[in-house]
Amino acid sequence: MSAELVSSRSRRESIADAGIRIISRDGVRALTHRAVDREAQLPQGSTSYHAKTRAALLELIVDVLTSRTKLDTEALGTDLNTEFADEDRPTVDQLAALLAALVDTLTARQDDMRARYALILELNDVPDLRQKLIDQSDVNAAARLVATRALAKTGLPDWGAHVDELLSLTDSLVFYRTAVNPTVDLQSILARYLRGATHA
Rank of each mutant, 00 (worst) to 15 (best):
M1N: 11
S2A: 12
A3G: 12
V6D: 15
V6S: 14
S7Q: 14
S7I: 06
S8K: 15
S8L: 14
R9C: 10
R9T: 10
A16H: 05
G19A: 05
I20C: 03
R21C: 06
R25Q: 14
D26L: 12
D26K: 13
V28M: 11
A30T: 11
L31Y: 06
L31V: 08
R34I: 11
R34F: 12
A35Y: 08
V36P: 01
V36S: 03
A40H: 10
Q41F: 11
Q41E: 15
Q41R: 15
P43W: 12
Q44T: 14
S46K: 06
S48K: 14
H50C: 06
A51E: 00
K52C: 03
K52I: 06
R54I: 11
A56S: 15
L57H: 07
L60G: 01
D63K: 11
T73H: 05
E74Q: 10
L76S: 05
G77F: 00
D79C: 06
T82N: 12
F84D: 04
A85F: 08
E87L: 10
D88A: 09
P90I: 04
T91Q: 03
D93C: 02
D93T: 01
Q94H: 02
L95P: 00
L95Y: 00
A96M: 01
A96F: 01
L98M: 06
L98K: 04
L99N: 04
L99A: 06
A100V: 09
A101F: 04
L102P: 00
V103S: 01
T105E: 07
L106K: 00
T107Y: 00
A108T: 09
R109G: 10
R109Y: 13
R114P: 02
R114E: 05
R116A: 00
Y117K: 05
A118S: 12
N124S: 15
N124A: 14
V126M: 15
P127F: 12
L129I: 12
R130N: 11
Q131S: 15
R144S: 13
V146G: 02
A147G: 06
A150R: 00
L151P: 00
L151V: 05
A152V: 07
K153G: 02
L156K: 08
P157C: 09
W159N: 12
H162K: 11
H162A: 11
V163K: 04
T170S: 10
D171Q: 13
L173Y: 01
Y176E: 08
Y176N: 05
Y176M: 08
R177H: 07
V184W: 01
L186M: 01
L186N: 01
I189Y: 04
I189K: 03
Y193F: 14
Y193H: 12
L194Y: 02
R195T: 06
G196M: 08
T198A: 15
H199K: 13
H199Q: 15
